[in-house]
């Protein structure tokens, strides 16, 4: 039994391709790989990956290192690299990973707004598709989601006045659907920044910039199954990511904003900011499942307690020390040379 555990721990570190290959080593390997550690996803991705997709139990972070080279890291132990994967399509120069859903990544090259690729970094299979709609317009945002009802992935592209949905399995583009945000406010077509959406419980969310009333921008949501859209406004928000319980995190100036889709409620959390502003607020980073991840792979837990989570964030980001002090005896600790945030 013990040897079995150890063996499954070792092969748990292997990339998917080798898991599938090593099933043929022996009966016990086949059993270990098929059952214990690795869940076969029930998703029908056959059209994309042309094979079954396996998802190891380990949570992986995909980091973009440089031109098309991506690196896997284990979320629990990011010090150890789990291997590299190179995006195989050389035509896509300097590709960026826009959205992620299950094992699939939506890729785009900065020089082209028409062609996109869906890539499975685990199996290194990819498929490209072409958007028939842009007519020289650059999309403002994109999203990737999975519709469990029709069991297929959908790609959503947002333009200034409409959005389109691409059905991955059927290789089919839905007709344009108009976006009317409000009579006074339209989406800002001059916005240069791409807004990748984040999928939570079958709904894709974006923070977009708008022309019109300054400093208020729409948070868009599109339901994956019905392809209906909705929006609400918040002040200056930029989407960061989501946390485990389905809440969505934005940053707004010096604050973190937590949005709870169930209650439609924005909650602002003050972050004590030092003179040179807090790392999280100036760098582009995202949250993966309670962890804040940026391109350096820095991560931390976002705990449930709303104010503590922001504080712990700063501590971990700056590699500071966190000390719990009783206020009454704080003065006994003598002269303080470091800055302390409370």
């Amino acid at each position: 039994m013990e040897a079995y555990d150890i063996l499954s721990q070792i092969i748990g570190n292997l990339p998917v391709k080798f898991l599938l290959r090593f099933k043929s080593v022996s009966k016990s390997w086949n059993t270990i790989i098929s059952e214990s550690q690795f869940a076969k996803t029930d998703l029908d991705l056959s059209k994309i990956a042309s094979e079954i997709v396996w998802r190891p139990k380990k949570k992986l972070i995909l980091l973009h290192k440089n031109d098309g080279v991506f690196e896997f890291r284990n979320l629990e132990n990011p010090r150890i690299a789990m291997g590299e994967q190179v995006f195989p399509l050389k035509r896509f120069r300097n590709p960026s990973a826009l959205c992620l859903c299950h094992c699939l990544v939506l890729m785009k090259t900065p020089i082209d707004d028409i062609e996109y690729a869906l890539w499975n970094p685990c199996t290194n299979e990819y498929r490209t598709f072409i958007c028939p709609y842009p007519n020289g317009m650059t999309p403002l945002g994109c999203g990737l989601c999975y519709d469990s009802r029709s069991s297929e992935h959908k790609v959503i592209l947002i333009f200034t006045s409409f959005y389109v949905v691409y059905y991955v399995k059927r290789n089919y583009w839905m007709n344009k659907k108009p976006i009317v945000v409000s009579r006074e406010i339209a989406l800002d077509e001059r916005s240069q920044e791409w807004s990748p959406g984040i999928t939570v419980n079958g709904v894709v969310y974006w923070s977009l910039s708008s022309s019109g009333i300054r400093s208020w921008n729409p948070v868009m949501e599109i339901n994956c199954e019905t392809a209906d859209f909705g929006y609400r406004f918040a002040r200056d928000v930029i989407l960061l990511g989501c946390i485990r319980n389905g809440e969505i995190v934005f940053r707004a100036g010096g604050k973190l904003v937590i949005y709870d889709p169930k209650r439609c409620n924005f909650e602002y959390i003050k972050i004590p900011i030092c003179s040179e502003s807090f790392y999280l607020l100036k760098s582009r980073c995202g949250l993966v499942d309670n962890h804040i991840v940026d391109n350096q792979g820095v991560h931390l837990y976002v705990v449930k307690h709303s104010s503590i989570r922001a504080l712990l964030g700063i501590v971990a980001m700056h590699n500071l020390e966190l000390e719990q002090l009783d206020v009454k005896i704080a003065f006994l600790h003598g002269e303080l040379e470091e800055d302390i945030y409370m």
Binding site: I6, I10, N13, F18, R21, S24, I80
Partner: peptide, 13 residues
């Protein structure tokens, strides 16, 4: 375990 996996990687069955 990571090291063992690294050694097994790319190997034939």
């Amino acid at each position: 375990c990571q090291s063992a996996a690294d050694r097994l990687k790319n190997k034939s069955v």
